[in-house]
Deep mutational scan, measured.
Amino acid sequence: VKVYLPNKQRTVVTVRDGMSVYDSLDKALKVRGLNQDCCVVYRLIKGRKTVTAWDTAIAPLDGEELIVE
Rank of each mutant, 00 (worst) to 15 (best):
G47R: 02
N7V: 01
L5I: 00
L44N: 11
K2W: 07
V3Y: 13
V21S: 02
E69D: 08
V40L: 08
K46G: 14
V51F: 08
N35I: 03
D17V: 09
T56W: 06
I58E: 04
V40S: 07
G63W: 02
V15E: 08
T11G: 01
I58V: 09
Q9Y: 05
V3K: 04
R10M: 15
T14S: 10
D23I: 05
D62R: 12
V31W: 07
V51S: 07
L61D: 06
L44A: 05
D55T: 07
R16D: 11
D23R: 07
V40T: 09
R32W: 09
R48L: 07
K8N: 15
V13E: 02
V1A: 03
D55Y: 04
L61S: 10
D37H: 11
L61C: 06
T56Y: 08
L61H: 07
C38V: 12
D26Q: 15
V12N: 07
E64S: 11
G18A: 05
T50V: 15
V13K: 00
G33P: 00
W54M: 05
A53W: 03
V68I: 10
D26F: 08
T14R: 13
Y4K: 15
R32D: 05
L34I: 05
G63V: 11
V1D: 00
C39E: 00
I58C: 13
D26L: 10
C39D: 01
Q36S: 09
T14H: 09
V13H: 00
Y42Q: 00
S24C: 15
V40H: 03
R16T: 11
I58L: 13
R43V: 03
W54R: 01
G47K: 03
K49G: 02
M19F: 07
K8C: 08
V12H: 11
N7M: 06
D62M: 12
A53C: 09
Y42P: 01
K30S: 08
Q36R: 14
C39T: 07
D26C: 14
T56P: 04
D37R: 09
R43C: 03
K2G: 06
V1M: 10
V40Y: 08
D37G: 08
T52L: 14
V1I: 11
Y42A: 00
N7S: 07
Y4Q: 14
Y22L: 12
K49T: 00
R16K: 12
A28L: 14
Y42E: 00
S20Q: 02
S24A: 15
K49S: 02
R16Q: 12
T11K: 06
T11N: 00
A53F: 01
V12I: 11
A28R: 00
T11Y: 06
D23W: 07
V68A: 06
G47E: 04
A59D: 12
Y22A: 14
D23C: 01
L44R: 11
S20M: 02
V31L: 14
D23K: 11
I45Y: 12
V3E: 03
R10C: 14
T56A: 14
V31E: 15
Y4F: 12
A59T: 14
K30H: 02
Y4S: 13
R16H: 15
D23Q: 15
S20C: 07
I45G: 09
R32S: 10
L25C: 06
Y42I: 02
V15K: 02
V41K: 03
C39G: 01
Y22P: 00
T14W: 11
K30V: 03
V31D: 08
C39F: 05
S20V: 01
N35E: 14
T52Q: 07
E65H: 08
V3T: 00
L61W: 07
E65F: 04
R43D: 01
G33L: 01
T14C: 08
R10F: 15
V31G: 11
R43E: 02
L29F: 09
V1R: 05
D62K: 11
M19T: 13
G63T: 10
K49F: 04
V40K: 11
R32T: 09
R32E: 09
A53G: 13
W54P: 01
R16E: 13
T50A: 08
D55Q: 13
E69Y: 02
D17S: 12
C38Q: 13
V1W: 01
D37K: 08
V41F: 02
L29Y: 04
L61V: 11
T14Y: 06
E69L: 01
T56E: 15
L44T: 09
D17L: 07
V51T: 07
R16A: 13
V41N: 02
I45V: 12
P60G: 14
E65L: 06
S24Q: 06
K8T: 07
T11D: 08
Y42C: 04
L34H: 02
N35V: 10
V21Q: 02
V41E: 01
V21C: 03
V40N: 05
A28K: 04
Y4R: 13
R10K: 13
T56G: 09
Y22C: 09
L44K: 13
D17T: 09
K2P: 05
T56C: 11
G18T: 06
I67T: 08
T52P: 00
G47W: 01
L5E: 02
S20A: 02
K30A: 08
V21Y: 13
V13C: 09
K8F: 06
R48G: 05
G63L: 05
E65D: 10
D26Y: 09
L29S: 04
L25V: 04
V13N: 04
S24Y: 05
L5M: 12
Y42H: 04
T52W: 07
V31T: 14
G63F: 07
K30Y: 06
S20W: 02
R43M: 00
I58S: 07
N35Y: 13
V15R: 02
V1F: 06
K49R: 10
V1G: 03
D62N: 12
V3C: 08
L5W: 15
L44Q: 07
V3W: 01
K46D: 15
Y42W: 06
T11C: 12
L25N: 00
G33R: 03
V31P: 06
V51M: 15
V13L: 09
E64M: 11
T56R: 07
L44S: 10
E65M: 07
V1S: 05
N7C: 05
W54K: 02
V21L: 15
Y42S: 05
V3F: 04
R32K: 06
K8S: 11
D55H: 08
L29N: 04
C38D: 12
A59E: 12
K49P: 05
R48F: 08
M19G: 08
Y22S: 15
C38E: 15
T56Q: 14
Q36A: 12
A59Y: 14
W54F: 01
R48Y: 07
Y4M: 14
K2N: 10
L25H: 00
G47C: 02
V15L: 11
Q9G: 07
T11F: 12
Q9A: 09
S20L: 01
Q9E: 13
R16N: 10
V41T: 02
D55N: 11
V41R: 04
R43W: 01
Y42F: 13
C39H: 09
A53T: 10
R48N: 12
Y22H: 14
N35Q: 08
I45M: 05
R32N: 15
V15G: 09
E65S: 10
D17A: 14
D26E: 14
K2L: 06
P6G: 05
V13M: 01
N35F: 05
K46M: 08
S24T: 13
T11H: 03
G47P: 00
P60K: 14
R48W: 04
D23P: 01
N7H: 08
M19A: 09
V15H: 10
K2F: 05
E64H: 07
M19Y: 06
S20F: 02
R32H: 15
N7L: 03
Y42V: 01
S20N: 10
C38R: 11
S24K: 01
V12C: 07
D23S: 10
D26K: 12
D17Y: 07
N35M: 07
R10N: 14
I45F: 09
D37Y: 06
T50S: 06
D55G: 09
Y4C: 06
A59G: 14
P60F: 13
L34Y: 05
S20G: 01
T52D: 00
K30R: 13
V31H: 05
I45A: 07
Y22K: 14
G18V: 03
I45S: 11
V31R: 14
G33N: 05
C39N: 02
C38S: 14
V40C: 11
D37A: 06
L5G: 00
Y22D: 02
K30L: 04
T52G: 00
G33C: 03
T14N: 11
R43G: 01
V51P: 14
L34W: 08
R10I: 15
V12P: 03
V12M: 08
D23H: 06
Y42R: 00
R43S: 07
C38I: 12
P6C: 04
P60S: 15
